[in-house]
């Protein structure tokens, strides 16, 4: 994974965090500017929905602003912000479950996946593939999904994932293994050919 200027800046956000902690709102604005896209993409992959991702991203930054003073080690901002984002994702999940309880038309992801495979010709199209993978990600257990997103899309090392989630590196690897295996099984079950990816 090639590192862009933004990635470099993201990995060196300490000075901005320190300034923000001293009440520098301008620095906090820059921090939001640096991290917004990353957190949005993290939450987008978690929910597969733009509106929810935007909502959770904004809630994450409000929480960051409210609790930034409590962050002791500015070097661990990266893990801290992901931790907040994950907590916000969990909260949004709970809210969604409550809302779905009232809703008659619940979103049946499993059925959606089956419908997607009705048209095999489109399966291999980039957009369709994205939708398929998005739907499949929603179906795997939450703890495995988070590790997959962190590893595949956020490019984090196992050590970083372990630190963010407060687990051991081996647990992180194990969750990733079972997550990928679950995806593999679901792909095979839905009739798609793994070799043609």
């Amino acid at each position: 994974m090639s590192e862009t200027l933004r990635d470099i800046a993201i990995n060196h956000s300490e000075s901005l965090v320190e300034k923000s902690q001293k009440g520098d709102n301008h620095a906090f604005g820059k921090l939001v500017g640096l991290w917004f896209k990353r957190i949005y993409n993290f939450t987008f992959k978690y929910f597969g929905n733009h509106d929810m991702a935007m909502e959770v991203t904004q809630r994450t930054f409000i929480s960051v602003y409210d609790h930034l003073g409590n962050l002791k080690n500015t070097g661990s901002f990266k893990y801290w912000i992901y931790k907040i984002a994950i907590n916000q994702c969990h909260e949004e999940d709970r809210r969604q479950k409550r809302r779905n309880w009232f809703s008659i038309f619940q979103n049946d992801d499993a059925r959606k996946v089956e419908e997607i495979h009705m048209d095999p010709e489109k399966e291999y199209h980039q957009k369709e593939m994205e939708e398929v993978m998005n739907s499949l990600l929603k179906l795997i257990p939450e703890e495995q999904k988070v590790v997959i997103i962190m590893k595949e899309y956020e490019g984090m090392k196992f050590r970083e994932i372990a630190e963010t989630l407060g687990i051991s590196e081996n647990t992180a690897k194990s969750r990733l293994y079972y997550g990928l295996n679950n995806l593999k099984k679901m792909i095979s079950k839905s009739g798609m050919n793994l070799e043609k990816f």
């Binding site: 993409n41 980039q126 993978m133 595949e152 995806l183 792909i187 793994l194 070799e195 990816f197």
Partner: peptide, 11 residues
Amino acid sequence: QVRKGLSHMED
């Protein structure tokens, strides 16, 4: 191959 499938989801 599963990883290849996941790579279809771009930022």
